[in-house]
Write a protein that binds this DNA or RNA. Structure first.
Lengths: 100, 100
DNA sequence: TACCACGTATTGGACGTCCGATATATTTAA
DNA sequence: TTAAATATATCGGACGTCCAATACGTGGTA
């Protein structure tokens, strides 16, 4: 039961990192996130991929859920914003020249 | 025993992808690769991280090994270069605006 | 009411990444 | 010729990502 470290941006946390990034641009519900990931990746991820990641981010208080009807809107918490900023710096350090 | 797909660049293959990228700039041996990853990531990866990845890439014929003494030099094969080009396109599609 | 569409959610199993510990081989230094 | 340093390699276990299948809940429609 060790708490997960979302700061380190190693290769294992890339999905969660990308979700944080997407939510930093716009609050979304699960299916919207899945669709956006699908556009980037080419294939829309399964519910078994996306919801566990959202659950983890929520439990770590990096995102919060706002339910209205059957739809749950996800948005970044202040902590989430700080963590994302750090992870983004690490990401750039790692992949800067790959994109250039 | 399903053959691994190095083309798809999903979140699981990021280490192998980055290794391919590093080798596209310069042939290196294992420790050099580990050091370069360490510089980018902040922490030098363990042998238990790096060598299995190199083994997989070698078995998939994306890299080749040239041994001289105790040192094994890794370099991209023609297939490796093609796979990297495709993976790089996918990577950019996925993360372009994260870096910008 | 019954039904359908859709968003949310879990399960199971496979796979890739990750570390620390351990081991082997080769080169260099004492 | 020992000893130390370095490069390579595997093991075990944990974790995060991934899909397909399954299921539940809510809202709207027939």
């Amino acid at each position: 039961m060790v708490k997960r470290n979302y700061y380190t941006c190693d290769m294992r946390g890339m999905l969660s990192f990308l979700i944080l990034f997407l939510l930093s641009k716009k609050s979304m519900h699960g299916q919207e996130i899945a669709n956006e990931l699908g556009k980037r990746k080419g294939i829309k991820p399964s519910p078994g991929t996306i919801y566990p990641a959202l659950k983890g981010l929520n439990e770590a208080k990096l995102i919060k859920e706002t339910k209205s009807g059957k739809i749950i809107k996800y948005s970044l918490t202040p902590i989430g914003k700080r963590v994302l900023a750090i992870a983004k710096r690490k990401f750039c350090q790692m992949f800067m020249d790959v994109i250039a």
